[in-house]
C-alpha cells in the first residue's frame, strides 16, 4: 500500500522538525507556567467576597472559555498591536512577533481554564482548615499561602498536568499564523516536497507517543499522591 511513498523525506527533515519541536515545547512550558500563575490569581479573585473583584474575573473567565482558541490567536497576532498603537499614540505599532503573540494568547486563554481547575481545588480544602489557621492568628494571605494553596495544589497536580497535555496538543494551532512549531515544520516540509501522507502520519505518531507517555505518567502520579481514604 505504501510502495510509492518516500519515508526518507522524514529523515532528511529531522533537524528542522526538531527545531519545531523545541518551539512547541517552549511554548507549552511557558504558557503552562504563565497560565497557572495567572489562573491562581483569577481563582482567588473569583472566590473573593468583594463583587468588584470577583465579577470582572468571572467575566474574563467565561468570555475566554466561550471563544475558540483560533479566534483568540488571531486577536492577539493581528489586532492587539494595532490597538496599543492607537491607545499609546506611538508612531509605530510594536508587533511582538508570532512566538510572543502566541505565547500571550495561550497564557491568557489557558489561564481561564486553569482558573476553574484551581478554584475547584481551593474549594475542596475543608473550611475548617482555614478557620484553624485564623485561630492560630494567621492573616488571610498567610492562610491562603501556607494552608490552602499547598493542599489545593497537591490535589490538583494531576489535573493541572492533564490540562498541560491538552495545551501541548493545542499549540499545533499556531499553524494558522505561520509559526514554525512541530506541526508547522511538518506541514512546510510536507507541502514543499509534496509528501503530505508521510509527514502528517509521522506528526501524528510523534504526538501520540509523547501524549500517551505523558498521560500514562500522570496516571501513575495520581495513584501515588491521592491521599488514602
Amino acid at each position: 500500500m505504501f510502495s510509492n511513498f518516500d519515508f526518507d523525506v522524514i529523515q532528511r527533515a529531522l533537524p528542522y522538525l526538531w527545531q519545531g519541536m523545541l518551539t512547541t515545547l517552549w511554548l507549552t512550558l511557558l504558557a503552562m507556567v504563565g497560565g497557572i500563575v495567572l489562573g491562581t490569581i483569577l481563582a482567588l479573585m473569583r472566590l473573593s467576597s468583594i463583587k468588584a473583584i470577583s465579577v470582572p474575573a468571572g467575566i474574563y473567565v467565561n468570555l475566554l472559555r466561550a471563544t475558540p482558541l483560533i479566534l483568540v490567536i488571531f486577536w492577539f497576532y493581528f489586532l492587539v498591536p494595532i490597538a496599543i498603537k492607537h491607545i499609546s499614540g506611538d508612531s509605530y505599532a510594536q508587533g511582538i512577533g508570532p512566538f510572543h503573540s502566541a505565547l500571550i494568547a495561550f497564557t491568557l486563554f489557558e489561564a481561564a481554564y486553569y482558573c476553574e481547575i484551581i478554584r475547584a481545588g481551593i474549594q475542596s480544602v475543608p473550611a475548617g482548615q482555614v478557620n484553624a489557621g485564623y485561630a492560630l492568628g494567621l492573616t488571610y494571605s498567610q492562610a491562603t499561602r501556607l494552608v490552602v494553596l499547598p493542599q489545593a495544589f497537591r490535589n490538583m497536580v494531576p489535573i493541572l498536568l492533564t490540562q498541560g497535555i491538552i495545551l501541548f496538543q493545542d499549540t499545533s494551532l499556531v499553524y494558522v499564523v505561520g509559526l514554525t512549531d512541530f506541526m508547522g515544520a511538518a506541514s512546510k516540509v510536507a507541502q514543499r516536497d509534496g509528501r503530505l501522507v508521510e509527514m502528517y502520519l509521522f506528526a501524528a505518531l510523534i504526538y501520540f507517543i509523547l501524549c500517551f507517555l505523558a498521560s500514562y505518567t500522570v496516571k501513575r502520579l495520581q495513584l501515588r499522591i491521592t491521599p488514602p481514604r
Binding site: Y77, F78, L79, V80, P81, I82, K85, Y92, A93, Q94, G95, I96, G97, P98, S101, V177, G178, L179, T180
Partner: peptide, 20 residues
Amino acid sequence: VEFVPVTSQTRIPVLMGGNI
C-alpha cells in the same frame, strides 16, 4: 535581521501590526 514567515492572508495585518 529577523525573518518572519507570512502567507497571502496574514501579510497585511502582520505588517500593520508591526510584526514585520
